[in-house]
Nucleic acid binder design. Structure first.
Length: 929
RNA sequence: GCCGGAGUGGCGGAAUUGGCAGACGCGCACGACUCAAAAUCGUGUCCCGUGAGGGGUGUGGGUUCGAUUCCCACCUUCGGCACCA
């Protein structure tokens, strides 16, 4: 045996085995109805140039698990491809004057080699590249199917535009408070453009259903929030011209408090509603609002602005004539672009109403039943203080401005009547006193008035102004009381509660209010139950070259015409100039866009925009199944066998993008008749992120990037794979540690020596050591099996490390025995999915048949794994005081007896009898003294 | 503001169902081998205390014989959403 053959040289053995596996087609997965299938899919990479450690972190545990499933007897498909269209290629083209195609395919070649160095079980025959005409032919075909079934439409609308990327973005690609581009960070602007959309909203409700899916709670929550379902009512208001304004509200129970309406500036009725007097102001506001959204959008907490249109609508439940305003806090893109404003129970409406002096009428009682009242200095006879005291009403005296001491009163509902009568007795002529919060009463010398309508609001305010010139500047009663800080926390609330000031509905409890009012509206034809979603339709047009052209032709005579299926693919021309003009480079090509109409043969033009690359990745899992099939996107024979994807792994960052799109795609195509079942991916698992050693996100500019190629060179792929599985919980990720990997490397080298240096066989294997060894081996096997099933990769490695340590301790006593041989055999098989090369090498050195990767997963010998003895923990009052070895099947009485007999226990109890003894089988005895 | 995740030694992390906290690895210390170093192997390593013993899983409470685990309140931190009617 030569020296170099004796030592562990991963860089010699790894490429050798990789070649052998490739040559033998070891990992080819073919349809085989006689075996259970397992489709293990991991998100395909974008060919950015180099495979980075994040790719390894995502892919190697996924590969290990796919290998585990394979050894478990499944026919496992583990394919790989490249998400090859997209902006970076085009940007590289502009910058370095290299064709995006050349750049992309060169990167793919490089990355394919790097992927192979990982030692994965990828079946390379099934590789796809989304930029191949053979692939995008079918991307275009899918577009046409969606178009034909009414799920794709073209619409002129204000869309998000990234001025740096020179293209439109889907809503999901716009991030953060400043609404910046997901890719380059530039704040987006709005442009009004004709763009293609897919009707994702049509599937909003179904997308909320995760029945039968094993997806992380986290992703489901993210998607559910993104889809943003809210239940309420659509209510029809009429303008004075009898035009209908439909609004969506989640609070139909507050309808009696709707004292004005607000339309989005872009709302179609604005023009008609605007009175001649208001026209100038309204137009100026609209222009300002448009400019606002063109510049950077301001933060959400900026002050609300708006203008009165001069028009009025009628509140359908109480016939009140209410003013219609426009304001940019109402968005044309959500609901109907119009709201009923209920300032007493909506924070934004409250702020708006106070600012513009619009009436605020409370219509929902405060659930806490708290009211406040401030009795002004000089307005009451002496002695009120004592009377309140006697009545048990909470109050205190404090100066109000410079006018002397006033009484600050806080009331519970049941105290209000008594309080009113006490105040009436003490109130001096020429003054009033108000109660606000849960109740809304204005006590005047000659009577009490309730703030229960717009009419009352006006009358109360007029009375107050008569009595005190100090309130003359206020436009509403609420504005007046809002000027006193003492009242501020009780003036407005958004909670559900008993309806008040709502005609015959007053007194309806909060739990029923919504349903009853909705039913009432429905019966009168003024509204109905409605559900609204935050989800928008998917904008797929991109004004860029490097993507799949949208297969649409515009004909002067026939209008919008889909490219006939037999004329697909619509090929990208190669001779294109990339100038960052904001127009698709295809538009600037001299000839490409000119074509003839497939209908009438007349002159026509092609659509020059290309598709969002998320379109490519919405169906790639289907193309893997038959990458060269030319009669459709997927060979039905393959589809029926492999689909759905059993396990999908990838990053969480796609929760509201790719993972919603691909679900939508699958469902839409199911309805068209292409796919089957409701969901494309049954089980989803997300890995976390590997951070730099400095705990920061890896980036070239920070200089903290870990290059896997160098690690492979230094340690070998097996060590890198194992370390990535070991160093953190897979779903959380962690900062990289350059010294941590040494531990994993040592462990594999220790394993190597353990196998290649057979040592002296033990003369007579020690039967006790044999029993212990077999127990440890089979216990480890049980634990590793469970951990593979549960994606608990880090504990797989630690269990295997522990077992190797144990084997090292026992070796002298069992070396050469069948139990030792069994231990090595099982050990290598357990490790094979994690470290495919070293296990294959050692397997062959042990003289076992090629290949270890075709071996079945070992079976746990339950008898061998069973403990004979256990350590019984003896606690006194919950504190561990002793540990005793007992047979595993010890009876409860015997266990208790043994525990009580313990010297330490006796010492602590010092003769006192225990009050209680608790026995947990197989674990502990707790003595309560 | 709303929604969700995470807080355990110097570090990454482990702990079926409420039952021995700190497995495994890194780092560190000491020792063996060596002229020496690297590599390798061995021993130790939560904190306080010489010791018996005591304390300890972000903080404060609670339930329980017993809580890292369950309940309540809060703090820190990461991620998502955010004028959504």
């Amino acid at each position: 045996m030569t020296d170099s053959n004796h030592h562990y040289h991963p860089n010699k053995i790894e490429p050798r085995w990789q070649q052998r596996w490739e040559q033998d087609g070891l990992y080819h997965a073919d349809v085989d109805p006689s075996r259970p299938k397992h489709y293990a899919l991991t998100m395909l990479p974008y060919p950015s140039g180099d495979l980075h450690i994040g790719h390894w972190y995502a892919m190697t545990p996924s590969d290990a698990r796919a290998r585990f499933m394979r050894m478990q007897g499944y026919n496992v498909l583990f394919p790989m491809g490249f998400d090859a269209f997209g902006l970076p290629a085009e940007n590289a083209a502009i910058k370095n004057n290299i064709h995006p195609k050349d750049w992309t395919y060169r990167n793919i070649d490089r990355m394919r080699g790097q992927l192979r160095s990982m030692g994965t079980m990828i079946d390379w025959r099934r590789e796809i590249i989304s930029a191949d005409p053979e692939y995008y032919h079918w991307t275009q075909w899918f577009f046409i199917q969606l178009y034909k079934h009414g799920l794709a439409y073209r619409k002129k609308s204000p869309v998000d535009w990234c001025p740096n990327c020179n293209t439109t973005l889907a809503r999901e690609q716009v991030w953060g408070e400043d609404r910046h581009c997901e890719r380059c960070g530039t704040p987006v602007i709005k442009r009004n453009l004709d763009q293609w959309f897919f009707k994702t909203t049509q599937y909003a409700e179904e997308l909320l259903n995760y029945e039968g899916m094993d997806w992380p709670e986290r992703v489901r929550v993210l998607q559910t929030n993104w889809i943003g379902r809210s239940e309420g009512a659509s209510v029809l208001f009429q303008t004075e011209d009898e035009d209908i304004i439909e609004v969506f509200t989640t609070r139909p129970d507050t309808l009696w408090g709707a004292t004005f309406m607000v339309l989005a500036p872009e709302h179609p009725l604005v023009e008609k509603l605007t009175s001649p007097e208001q026209k100038a102001e309204v137009e100026a506001y609209i222009a300002q609002a448009q400019r606002q959204s063109d510049i950077q959008r301001e933060a959400a907490d900026r002050e609300k602005t708006g203008v009165f249109t001069g028009g009025y609508a009628i509140n359908p439940v109480n016939g009140q004539r209410i003013p219609v305003w426009i304001a940019d806090y109402v968005l044309m893109t959500y609901g109907t672009g119009a709201i009923m404003a209920v300032p007493a129970h909506d924070e934004r409406d409250f702020a708006f109403a106070v600012k513009y002096g619009l009436p605020i009428i409370p219509v929902i009682a405060r659930p806490d039943g708290i009211s406040k009242s401030l009795v002004f200095p000089g307005s009451y006879e002496a002695g009120l203080d004592e009377k309140l005291q006697a009545a048990g009403i909470e109050h205190y005296s404090a100066p109000v401005g410079e006018s002397g001491e006033g009484l600050f009163v806080t009331l519970r509902d049941e105290q209000v009547d008594e309080y009113v009568s006490l105040v009436r007795q003490s109130l001096k002529p020429g003054y009033w006193c108000e109660i606000v919060g849960s109740r809304w009463l204005f006590i005047f010398p000659d009577g009490v008035r309730e703030l229960d309508s717009v009419q009352a609001d006006r009358e109360i305010l007029a009375r107050c102004k008569e009595l005190s010139p100090a309130v003359s500047q206020f436009r509403t009663t609420m504005e007046m009381v809002n000027s006193l800080p003492f009242y501020r926390d009780v003036l407005f609330h958004p909670e559900y509660g008993t309806m008040i000031h709502s005609g015959e509905f007053s007194g309806t409890p909060g739990s029923e209010a919504k349903k009853r009012v909705t039913g009432y509206l429905e019966s009168r034809g003024q509204g109905k139950l409605a559900v609204n979603y935050r989800l928008r339709d998917w904008l797929i047009s991109r004004q860029r070259y490097w993507g799949a052209p949208i297969p649409i032709i515009y004909c002067e005579k026939c209008g919008v015409v889909a490219v006939p299926e037999d004329q697909l693919p619509v090929l990208l021309p190669d001779d294109v100039e990339w100038k960052p003009t904001g127009e698709s480079p295809l538009k600037l090509h001299p000839t490409w866009k000119h074509t003839t109409c497939p209908n009438c043969g007349g002159q026509a033009e092609r659509e020059t925009d290309t598709m969002d690359t998320f379109m490519d990745s919405s169906w790639y899992h289907l193309r893997y199944l038959s990458p060269h099939y030319d009669k459709g996107p997927v060979d039905p024979k393959e589809y029926n066998y492999w689909m759905p994807v059993d396990t999908y792994t990838g990053g969480i960052e796609h929760a509201t993008m790719h993972l919603i799109y691909t679900r939508f795609f699958h469902k839409a195509l199911r309805d068209i008749g292409v796919t089957k079942g409701d969901e494309p991916m049954i089980q989803l698992r997300n890995q976390g992120m590997v951070l730099g050693e400095d705990s920061e996100k890896m980036s070239k500019s920070r200089g903290n990037v870990i290059a896997p190629d160098e690690l492979v060179k230094a340690y070998g792929a097996d060590t890198v794979r194992a370390y990535l599985m070991f160093f953190a919980r897979w779903d959380l990720g962690a900062p990289w540690s350059n010294s941590g990997i040494d531990g994993t490397s040592r462990w594999l080298r220790r394993l190597w020596t353990t196998v290649v240096e057979p040592g002296e066989p033990a003369a007579e294997p020690d039967p006790e050591a044999v029993r212990v060894l077999r127990r440890k081996v089979h216990q480890a096997l049980r634990s590793v099996t469970n951990d593979f099933r549960d994606f608990q990769f880090n504990t797989i490695i630690s269990t295997l490390m522990e077992l190797l340590n144990e084997m090292g301790r026992l070796r002298d006593k069992v070396n050469g025995s069948p139990a030792w041989e069994e231990a090595l055999d099982i050990y290598l098989r357990m490790l094979a999915p994690v470290a495919p090369h070293i296990t294959e090498e050692l397997w062959s050195r042990l003289g076992k048949p090629y290949s270890i990767h075709n071996q079945p997963w070992p079976e746990v010998d339950e008898e061998a794994a069973a403990d004979e003895e256990i350590t019984l923990v003896v606690q006194v009052n919950g504190k561990v005081r002793d540990r005793i070895q007992v047979p595993v099947d010890i009876s409860e009485d015997a266990a208790k007896e043994k525990a009580l007999a313990s010297e330490t226990v006796q010492k602590i109890l010092s003769g006192r009898p225990p009050r209680k003894v608790i026995y947990v089988p197989g674990r502990l005895v707790n003595i309560v003294g």
